[in-house]
Amino acid sequence: MDVIRHAFWQIPNHVELLNQAVRDENARVRLTAVVAATWLDNAEGAKIAVEAFKLPVDRWIGPVLHYALIYTLKDDVEGLKAAGQLNLEGNQAAADYFSGKLKIGQPVAEAGTNSKPARKLTAAEEKAFKLGREIYFRDAHCATCHQADGKGIQNIYPPLAKSNWLEDDERLTKILLKGLWGPITVNGQHFDPTKGVPPMMGFGGLLNDEEAAAVLSYVRLSFGNNGKLVSPATVKKVREATKDRVNFYMTDELLKEHPLKAAPPAKAKKGAK
């Protein structure tokens, strides 16, 4: 399922495979099929997710399915409804869910996270913050790896909280649009692909300029960060400049283009000579 999720456009029969998986007797297979369907982000993905209701929706699948349908696939579901193509025949659980009779879970818990803005926001910042927050917590987007508190997972996913990688607009935008691969040190923590650290996938095909700018701005204003907004114009500029690129950025390559700022010198202790 992970192969389909990350490279579905290269697999001609990916819809057929996901439809098979979402009907599998193994709940874990069905769960990964729903997650992969969100990456399609189209009507076919919505149909696959709805198909998951035909088998038991457990406490693991429930929140993921609910989150997919109210966020990532919401527009696709609405499109199917409007076109009269949302087929719920023989799928009573799905019919009950869409009518509000069936509750299957809630989105990723955000309570208790340090995602409140570090300062009082202007109207423009508040708008970007709210949109960015919604995108950050979408299924299979930012919170999945970097976690709800922005601290990542030690030795696997780098932190965003007070990250020294956030200050350059273009570097940050390139990472979001195209992804990143290679050994990386963030806030003194080293993350090494040879020890199981996966690449960060690019989200250029999933987010428009406004959405990409908003989620980057949200990160810059959350988790103890106190940065400035990234503008949609910046995202548009970077997207155009990198439109022919199909691979991840490598960390050493990206740092040649956009070096990290040198750490400020340590303050001398009082009394030192």
Rank of each mutant, 00 (worst) to 15 (best):
Y71N: 07
V219A: 12
G79S: 13
V35Y: 10
Y157Q: 03
K256H: 07
Y136M: 05
N42S: 12
T251P: 03
F8I: 01
T185G: 13
T185A: 15
A140Y: 01
A123P: 11
K120A: 07
V29N: 10
A272I: 08
P12E: 03
N19Q: 15
N91G: 05
G84I: 08
N26T: 07
G132T: 11
V22N: 03
G224A: 09
K127G: 05
E78C: 07
P107N: 15
K178G: 02
D139N: 09
A83E: 05
E253W: 08
I4P: 10
K174L: 03
K256I: 13
E211M: 03
T144E: 10
A83Y: 14
I153G: 01
A266K: 14
K47P: 01
G179A: 05
R245V: 09
K273S: 08
R59C: 02
A94E: 00
L160Q: 13
D24T: 12
A68R: 00
Q106K: 12
L73G: 04
A266E: 14
A21F: 02
G152H: 01
I104C: 03
R30H: 05
Q154E: 07
G152A: 04
C142D: 07
S217E: 00
G179R: 00
I61A: 13
A148E: 10
T242P: 00
L180H: 01
G132D: 03
K270P: 06
D41C: 06
D169N: 14
Q92R: 05
R220A: 01
F223L: 09
L121H: 09
A148T: 08
I156S: 04
V230Y: 14
T242K: 11
A161K: 07
V22W: 13
V3C: 09
L69Q: 09
K116S: 15
E167H: 12
A33I: 11
G45A: 11
G105F: 06
R28E: 06
A118D: 10
I153N: 08
G204Q: 04
Y97Q: 09
L40G: 01
T113D: 06
A161W: 14
G188P: 03
Q189N: 13
L18M: 12
P259L: 08
T194E: 14
Q20H: 05
F98I: 01
G271Q: 13
I184S: 04
T242R: 05
E253S: 15
A27W: 15
L177C: 06
A262R: 02
I156A: 09
D244I: 08
E170R: 08
R138L: 04
V22M: 07
G79Q: 05
P199Q: 03
L31D: 14
K174M: 13
P193S: 02
L207F: 10
A95C: 08
D244W: 07
V77A: 15
P199C: 13
K228W: 06
Q10W: 07
I184K: 11
A212N: 00
P265A: 11
V235P: 15
G132Q: 01
I104M: 11
A262T: 12
A68M: 06
D192V: 02
G79V: 08
T185Y: 12
K237L: 00
T38P: 10
T194K: 09
W181Y: 05
K116V: 15
D41K: 03
D168C: 11
G182A: 02
R119C: 15
A49V: 03
G132W: 11
K261I: 10
G188Q: 12
P12L: 10
P107M: 11
E253H: 00
